[in-house]
């Protein structure tokens, strides 16, 4: 079995925790996020007949007051940038996070972007050019919903593939 450390990153209240709750098995309560600043869950998927276990480090949301504790990023094989599709600013913040990781000198780390809350179509703020701008951060984007499970499986699978390829 292949195990990989994956970090879930994104602004405050973009729905990271809801995403993983839909998707994964976990034993720790959400309280860990506000206390320790991280909560770990795992997701096992099958990739070309082999099991890949993703250890998902749900790291407390980043906003003006709280910055990501970079120690938690150490050793990650991939990361997911979560954006709240109903809040355009969270896209910019995701880009900033990418840049910071890029500066960390840990080489190119596989990553994907989840454009979350796609079920809230009425409030959706992101436009085509916004999504296209994600090329800047060399990331593939997936429209996801923690409510409907849309895009989740695909997104995780894609990241897993990239990570396994990277070795």
């Amino acid at each position: 079995m292949i195990k990989k450390k994956v970090c879930m990153l994104g602004s405050f209240a973009v729905g990271k925790t809801s995403l993983v709750r839909q998707f994964v098995q976990g034993i720790f309560s959400d309280k860990y996020l506000t206390t320790v600043g991280v909560k770990i869950d795992k997701k096992t998927i099958e990739l070309a007949g082999e099991e890949v276990q993703m250890m998902l480090w749900d790291i407390a949301g980043e906003d003006g007051f709280q910055r990501i504790q970079t120690t938690y990023l150490r050793g990650m094989a991939g990361y997911i940038l979560v954006v709240d599709g109903t809040r355009r600013s969270t896209l910019e913040e995701a880009k900033n996070i990418f840049l910071r990781i890029d500066e960390m000198d840990i080489g190119s780390v596989p990553h994907v972007v989840f454009l979350n809350k796609i079920d809230l179509t009425d409030e959706w703020e992101l436009k085509g050019e916004d999504i296209a701008s994600l090329n800047e951060i060399e990331a593939r984007a997936f429209k996801t919903s923690a409510k409907t499970n849309e895009g989740l499986e695909e997104g995780f699978l894609n990241l897993a593939e990239m990570m396994v390829k990277q070795g």
Binding site: K3, Q25, F28, V36, K39, I40, K42, Y72
Partner: peptide, 17 residues
């Protein structure tokens, strides 16, 4: 035994913390 993978991760996280 709780899920040892998760415990392991959390133990590391707590150490970092």
């Amino acid at each position: 035994v709780m899920d040892s993978d998760l415990v392991s991760g959390m133990l590391t996280a707590i150490q970092d913390f």
